[in-house]
Simulated assay, not measured.
Amino acid sequence: MPTAIIADDERLMRDQLRMRLHQVWPELEIVGEAKNGEEAVELVTQLKPDLTFLDIRMPGITGMEAARQIGSQSNIVFVTAYDQYAVEAFERGAVDYVLKPPEQERLQLTVDRLKERLAKPKAAAVVSDSVTQMLSQLAEKMAAPKPAYLQWIQASIGQDLRMIPVEDILFFRSDEKYTCVQTEKFEALIRKPVRDLAEELDPSLFWQIHRATLVNVNAIEGVTRDIRGRHLVLIKGKSDKLEVSRSFLHLFKQM
Rank of each mutant, 00 (worst) to 15 (best):
K141R: 09
P193G: 02
A155D: 02
Y149L: 01
I169F: 03
D129W: 13
E187T: 14
Q159E: 13
R191G: 09
V127S: 06
P145A: 00
D168Q: 14
A148F: 14
F172L: 00
M163F: 11
F172Y: 00
P193H: 00
S136Q: 12
I157F: 14
A188E: 00
I190F: 01
K185E: 15
M142S: 07
T183H: 03
R162K: 11
T183G: 02
L189M: 04
C180H: 08
L138C: 02
K177I: 15
E176G: 13
V127I: 08
S156N: 15
M134T: 08
G158S: 06
I169H: 05
A188C: 02
Y149A: 04
A155H: 02
Q133V: 14
L135D: 03
S136Y: 12
C180N: 13
D129H: 13
Q137R: 12
I157L: 12
I164W: 03
L189F: 05
Q133D: 13
M134N: 03
G158A: 02
E140F: 09
Q151I: 12
L138N: 06
V194S: 00
V194H: 03
Y178M: 04
L170R: 07
R162L: 11
Q151D: 14
A124N: 10
L138E: 10
R195H: 13
S136H: 11
I169K: 05
A125K: 11
W152N: 14
V127M: 10
P147L: 02
R162V: 13
S128D: 15
P165A: 02
T132N: 13
D160L: 15
S156R: 14
I164M: 10
Q137D: 08
T132A: 10
V131C: 09
D175N: 05
P147S: 04
S128L: 08
E176N: 11
V126S: 13
E184W: 10
A139H: 10
A125L: 10
W152F: 13
L150Y: 06
Q159R: 11
M163Q: 14
M163D: 15
P165W: 03
F172K: 01
K177C: 08
Q137G: 14
P165Q: 09
T132H: 08
K185N: 15
Q159C: 13
A188P: 02
A143D: 05
S136W: 12
S128M: 14
K185Q: 14
F172W: 04
L170M: 09
E140W: 14
F186H: 12
I164N: 03
D196E: 06
V194P: 01
E184A: 15
K141L: 09
K177M: 06
V181D: 00
V166L: 07
M134Q: 00
K177D: 09
T179V: 00
F186K: 10
L170T: 03
S128C: 15
L170Q: 13
V166K: 07
